[in-house]
Design a protein around this nucleic acid. Structure first.
Lengths: 342, 342
DNA sequence: CTGAAAGCGCTTACAG
DNA sequence: CTGAAAGCGCTTACAG
């Protein structure tokens, strides 16, 4: 709307003030043609004093960048994304972008809505965004960086992929517990409000399972608590597992620190001791891990570095897309921060 | 860029497919003129089958909505904003908006950059955004909703203001501690990476101070720890306060749960007991409060409701701006959730 | 009831 | 070295 908004300064105003043609103003702004230096200076002065900013819509209409990037995340609230978004925002701002943040949505419209807003680039940090939609975005030539929360090996084309080490990290959690004598391991998935289970191609879950197999530990449905829609649901599931006689866990891996803390609470209410009876490892190395009691051993994910790498990759894809022929990958290591819970 | 992006379907394609003029397509989409129902149906069918989405830039250029709103926050990482953003995103998506998230920035360019991106509305949840910039946005007629983290009574014009009860909440924290026999109270401000102190018009700090005065408690610089740029800095400040002889706190109010947890840690390292020697109250009622040990008494801020109210207010301001003549206010109550730390 | 046309603020191929 | 003009994808006042 904005019928009562002040009319913003346009390129025509600048042209008039600087006594040059509108064309000259454009070329000064875009720096892509020689312009007489006196004129250039007049234009720059006018821009400065009139506080002119180009209209991004008009530029975008002509095929220029919109200076908006989109970040699709499925756990906006968590510590993991909080840190990531903070870092991405900070770099993006310096590069002239605004970051639009969006949970992923199931409806068919979502991808179309993305198209129609002409984002310069997209970051996907969601375990639930359908692969075929990702493929559509890649096929459409949209600069795309994927956070490898799950297996994306089936996505073809030019895009960036950041392996944040979740698979190896999950395996190391299991190894650490195993090396400390824990052979009956329980995995606690995250809370999903709709009660959905993580897909088997979720890297953390897959790492847990693969490492259990490598150690020849028995693996049944009892080893994995998933599909819980609330804290209470997790607590009850944990209590149920522990009330059985045939499988009593002595080690727990949480998909994130939050899940691990909930499990810790459940274990304590049963009257068991952490870490003596049950050792617990979380993921994210968040504030929660530092202030829980006992303090939680947790797998550190370097969100700040990840943010930097995402933005570098995305900037490359946006500015030099033609120079890439396939997917670009980058691998990051995780690191176990040992505290009192193991 | 996007030189190798597929050309998106445009209004002209729809007109051709539906065998009508481009004008008709526009009127069908905008629903602001009578259109022959057979034609209308052909247009709708074409839109459906060709998955057409209007180009938002072009629409915005003609003065229509951009369908982007901006959320300026100064603590993206914290629990408070995480929940808020989640709720806002969810409502915004249903209303057809994308939410751009941005930390606040000091440079002069910031406001101009906001203008040039033509957001339909702006939400400000930052204690640091300069008042004069806010006034400029209001004066320009931009629909604006302010989260009352600090005193905005000097801002004139049409805008929305949401009083989240922080001032009363802070006073109640002090009252609760006072009623439980604590008369030597310490306030822990949040971490500020640049080492800046909260302005005195920060509602939580102001509530703390005012209530101390009302109770005739002595109030010196010793009562407030601020300007810390790290956890370690807070811990050292707390230890220093406790090492003095003339003022030994028996109660602590944290600006948020994080600050409160850090203080709790510091107090424990001194060898004091929580809550026996020192009672502690936090703000946000976050996960941290539930999983810290002892579990933290904390002031609950109803982020989900706040999110809903923000979006309702913003939608009203965007769609019916003309019907408002001054600022719209809404007040929310906070609620103290008592746990083990008091 | 409906269409051709002007115009939003830009960029840049084209023609000097 | 520089400007007039076409055009990006829309909306809507204007003229039938």
């Amino acid at each position: 709307m904005g019928m009562n908004r002040k009319r913003p300064v346009t390129r025509a105003d600048i042209a008039k003030a600087a006594a040059v043609s509108e064309t000259i103003v454009s070329y000064v702004i875009n720096g892509n043609r020689y312009v007489n230096s006196a004129k250039r200076q007049r234009v720059l002065d006018a821009i400065e004093t009139m506080k002119y900013k180009p209209n991004h819509f008009a530029r975008a209409l002509k095929g220029k960048k919109s200076n908006h990037i989109l970040f699709i995340a499925d756990d906006i609230e968590g510590d993991y994304f909080g840190k990531l978004i903070r870092e991405i925002d900070s770099i993006a701002y310096r590069s002239g972008y605004f970051v639009t943040l969006c949970a992923d949505h199931d409806d068919d419209d979502f991808v179309q809505r993305i198209y129609s807003h002409f984002f310069d680039g997209i970051i996907i940090g969601s375990a639930k965004f359908p692969l075929q939609n990702i493929q559509r975005l890649v096929d459409a030539g949209l600069p795309l960086v994927l956070l490898e929360i799950r297996d994306y090996s089936k996505v073809n084309g030019v895009y960036g992929l950041i392996n944040t080490g979740l698979y190896q990290g999950a395996r190391e959690c299991v190894k650490y517990l195993y090396d400390h004598g824990r052979k009956h391991l329980l995995y606690i998935d995250r809370i999903d409000e709709k009660g959905g289970a993580s897909a088997i191609d979720d890297w953390r879950l897959k790492g847990f399972i693969d490492q259990l197999r490598e150690f020849d530990l028995t693996l049944t449905d009892d080893n994995i608590i998933t599909g819980c829609s609330s804290e209470q649901a997790i607590i009850e599931s944990v209590r149920k597992i522990f009330s059985q006689s045939h499988f009593v866990p002595d080690g727990i891996v949480g998909r994130n620190d939050y899940s691990a803390c909930i499990a810790m609470k459940a274990v304590k209410t049963i009257g068991l001791s952490v870490p003596n009876d049950v050792a617990i490892v979380g993921f994210d190395n968040s504030r929660l891990a530092r202030f829980s009691s006992p303090a939680l051993t947790s797998m550190e994910i370097r969100q700040k570095e990840i943010g930097t790498i995402i933005m570098n990759m995305l900037n490359s894809l946006i500015d030099e897309r033609a120079s890439f022929t396939g997917r670009i990958e980058q691998y990051l290591e995780t690191k176990l921060v040992v505290r009192e819970s193991t």
